[in-house]
Design a protein around this nucleic acid. Structure first.
Lengths: 201, 201
DNA sequence: CATGTATGTTGACGGTGGCAACATACATTT
DNA sequence: AAATGTATGTTGCCACCGTCAACATACATG
């Protein structure tokens, strides 16, 4: 009998932290962030109303922890190919944008959370540092791609703003339900590539 | 003595609906949407805890009403020059994008609300229709600008996606505080114009 | 086996949204 | 001007929530 299975019938739940996160994500997916309640989660899981606080001291901390994991996962997805020596810097840039957008499409709940100021307000301080380090990497990669000849005469900060905007914008269009009606059927991966193609030409 | 001034000392507040909205916006600005509480607003204003419900049946309705006003204001800003016969369709397109971004920069709280799914979930049904009508106007304007020669050979839906993304993205960068650290000092209007310029060339 | 720590439980408190019943001011009609 | 209906505000109540403190149980470590 596994440790987890044994714990399920015992006084200790054994895996409460993970289950709390899972159920919270599921709740957000179909009822929204607002609908997340520690007591309701505890009820669903079958544990006492104060049990969740042994794992997350406050409701905000639970949401912030999920968002924190989301940012880490997003940055991992965006930087996956960034050290591949076979790629030009322009190709790395494209990979960063595509990785970002693909992540947002696959993780709409996390993408929602990391854009929520109420949630991010309670995120760990060093998360902001990590985001800023990524931003610098992004800007630096742009500068190197320019050194390769791409948009050589344009202002780096302007290109940075434009690329950040189109990436964040396409991510939003690809994952936010309100755009599912504006772009009927949503945007396919092919269409996203097409929307990006002009910029990386 | 004006009606409003007379009412301030009377049993009736006289202007509660407007003041509720103002105080709610102020609360969101410095403490976030989460911190909006009907009872706290009532306390601040000096009225009984249930008085707000005569004007907004639920807390969600108050937030949705503010968001609704925000969308109307945004669409007005984006479509202001759209009927000007002196403009080419390409110029109209640029005016729509600039109007959108300028509105977001000037109305960060409303921009926050209209991107909040928890809030928009409770918005009036016909608001979605209005947004979709704007989207069609936007797409149609793109098609007409293409007929003028601009990006004539590109797929309209792809151009629509790219323009929507860059507009929404720049609006977010210009108004969301998290990007104030990524782009030190925020983006000036000049820089926003520069970021847009390439696309409308 | 003993003991400390992690995890879960129980009960309490204040704040909140929301409802119902009542009170007051205002507008409209007669 | 008086009466009456409607809009607005008040009071009291309920259930739910987050959070805390005190207690209980399981587990890990010596």
């Amino acid at each position: 009998m596994s440790q987890a299975a044994k714990s399920q019938t015992a006084y200790h739940h054994g895996d409460l932290s993970r289950v709390l996160v899972e159920r919270a994500v599921a709740t957000i997916e179909d009822k929204g962030v607002e609908a997340v309640s520690l007591r309701a989660l505890a009820r669903e899981i079958g544990v006492s109303h104060a049990a969740p606080m042994r794992h997350f001291p406050t409701r905000s901390a639970l949401l912030a922890a999920i968002a924190q994991h989301g940012v880490e996962s997003l940055l991992a997805s965006a930087t996956r190919d960034v050290d591949d020596p076979a790629l030009t810097y322009l190709e790395k840039l494209r990979a960063m944008a595509k990785g970002y957008i693909a992540w947002a499409k696959e993780n709409p709940v996390h993408h929602l959370l990391i854009r929520n100021q109420d949630v991010m307000r309670h995120a760990n301080d060093d998360l902001v540092g990590r985001i800023n380090r990524y931003a610098r990497l992004h800007e630096d990669t742009i500068a190197r791609a320019q050194a390769e000849g791409w948009r050589r005469d344009e202002d780096t900060r302007t290109v940075f703003a434009r690329l950040t905007a189109i990436t964040a914008g396409l991510a939003m269009i690809a994952s936010d339900p309100i755009y599912k009606t504006v772009f009927q059927g949503g945007l396919s991966a092919t269409e996203i590539d097409a929307a990006l193609a002009d910029f990386f030409k």
